[in-house]
């Protein structure tokens, strides 16, 4: 997405003075940025820069000390984590955070649960709508299994999958929530070159479906390759923001990553 398109549409996500403080430590301070619909937006920074805290704040996992976050123009401030997902934001964690004992098919169906309606009474009485919803959920889970190349593992416990497969499983489960904005926290961590290639292909496919992607990663080369714009965070403050090639050549970014003399 070029900057002209960005300026023409309303941001899907906007932060205003986003600040998160833990005691005396200002983890993220007065951060302003916007992400536009369909954009692939990157957040980079050295370890401890506050990147994951930004995701925690967006998903209401940590409370905001100051400022606000707006998704499709509405504040997320008073929402609980599960309500943020219902609004259309989902997150993939830094490590392969999974439900270890749950089989792959059910794992993905769990992601669908915030979009389905069957109550506890329906599960006991089992009216036709219950069976229809279960059938639809299974069908959607099968599609996501196919999309993330996990065919043949439907009945395998999540913990039995390889690291890269677990990451793909989490991506499939996150997609099952039908998000409009997906937050990917270091999706390439611990992967070899082939696996990174597969993950990039998946992210690009998601984006082609019209989803907005917000990604954190350390791998500058990969981020330059896939992101439309990149924001650089250092000590919880915005260092710079711009096109990948501009950011890569910014002396402050080079200094933050490599250290100054």
């Amino acid at each position: 997405m070029d900057s002209m398109n960005s300026s023409q549409s309303n941001p899907i996500l906007r932060t205003e003075n986003l600040s998160v403080q833990f005691g005396a430590l200002m983890a993220v301070g007065q951060l302003d940025f916007q992400i536009y619909p369909g954009e692939l937006f990157g957040l980079i920074g050295p370890n401890g820069a506050g990147k994951t805290t930004v995701f925690n704040a967006i998903t209401s996992t940590v409370p905001l000390s100051h400022g606000d976050i707006y998704f499709k123009g509405k504040s997320l401030r008073s929402l609980k984590p599960h309500q943020v997902v219902t609004r259309g934001i989902v997150r993939m964690f830094q490590s392969a955070t999974i439900f270890p004992k749950i089989p792959v098919m059910i794992h993905i169906m769990n992601g669908l649960s915030c979009r389905t309606k069957s109550s506890v009474w329906n599960s006991i009485i089992r009216p036709p709508s219950f069976h229809k919803e279960e059938q639809t959920s299974r069908q959607r889970a099968r599609e996501l299994i196919q999309f993330t190349a996990l065919e043949g593992f439907e009945d395998h416990a999540a913990e039995s999958l390889s690291w890269a497969q677990q990451k793909r499983l989490m991506l499939a489960t996150a997609l099952a929530t039908e998000p409009r904005l997906i937050l990917l926290d270091e999706p390439f961590a611990g992967m070899n070159a082939d696996e990174i290639g597969e993950m990039i292909a998946l992210i690009q496919a998601i984006r082609q479906d019209g989803m907005t992607v917000f990604v954190i990663d350390h791998n500058m080369k990969v981020m330059q390759r896939i992101c439309d714009r990149i924001l650089v965070l250092n000590f919880g403050q915005k260092l710079t923001e711009g096109l990948p090639e501009e950011v890569a050549q910014d002396s402050r970014v080079i200094e933050a990553y490599l250290g100054g003399d």
Binding site: V85, I102, S113
Partner: peptide, 19 residues
């Protein structure tokens, strides 16, 4: 399935929209 998710990983369950 939601019960099982809570048993396995409460934080992840919330992050996937489960109350």
């Amino acid at each position: 399935r939601t019960f099982a998710s809570i048993r396995e990983n409460e934080d992840l369950a919330a992050a996937l929209g489960m109350n």
